[in-house]
Amino acid sequence: MLSPERLAQPDYEYLAQRHVLTYVEDAVYQLLENREDISQYGITRFFTEYFNSVCQGTHILFREFSFIQATPHNRASFLRAFWRCFRTVGKNGDLLTMREYHCLLQLLCPDFPLELTQKAARIVLMDDAMDCLMSFSDFLFAFQIQFYYSEFLDSVAAIYQDLLSGKNPNTVIVPTSSSGQHRQRPALGEAGVPEGVEAALFYQCLENLCDRHKYSCPPSALVKEILSSVQRLTFYGFLMALSKHHGINQALGALPDRRDLMQDPAGDEELERLLAQVPGLVPAAAATPEPGCPAPRILPRVGSPWRPLHHPRKVDTESDGSTEETDESET
């Protein structure tokens, strides 16, 4: 019922852990940006609505990337918003490319970096054939892992590389900004050495990492579960397993189970509500033309098919049949 440790924390630690100051600062920032409105609304009402929207998770809509990734709650809210807004893509069974998913992300967050979308696509496609089509659910769950645990995955990539090159894992000092290192695919073992690293050793290092990691990590019991079911595995094999693990999805708490992904009556209502907000947004959007983003004002309408993004090669089968590799590693 209560988590008593919060009562014993020093003030600053308590505020930092719950990101209170992040939101208070942002609220003030928003207030300054909207000074004209304040005279109409009143400051208390502004703060009430701001903090309520943070609770509801609608505060991240159309915000800049640096804010969207600032707290775990913002990340989870963004994932949820992405799912709710574009669920129809999955419902229609459309398969999209990485670039098309990136456009969808940019509809919600105009400066969303391409790099993150690419990384998520690598998980789905196992770092292969990057222009392949992906189903909505495959992409969504891979994207969830990549986006929510971004810093953790960077560290994991570094550890994986070290293990691959035969360094002693116990002396590994994990650099936190080593993205890109894992880009090159691990070369297939020269003389019949199997691909990947030994799972048990890998787990030892990850357990260590989870303990001292200051960013969010997946629950280490679940990581153990994944790694103890195999002998060896590759980096992308591991990420794929993370993204498919429904316990991890549950622990993260942003998305429903994979099988409930398309049914969400509450989401339909919410979607209606969000869309009702859209007309009010359009004039404001005119002030910020985003050169990199294709037409941020073409916003989705419920029920309308995805003409601009619709891929000519429509596949009628179930959405999960996107890539063969994907299904193989289903646990």
């Binding site: 004209e36 701001y50 002030a287």
Partner: peptide, 15 residues
């Protein structure tokens, strides 16, 4: 409506 308020008109000089 909350989102409307929070939309930051980046770069536009506030009048």
């Amino acid at each position: 409506m909350a989102a409307v308020e929070k939309r930051r008109p980046a770069g536009t000089p506030a009048g």
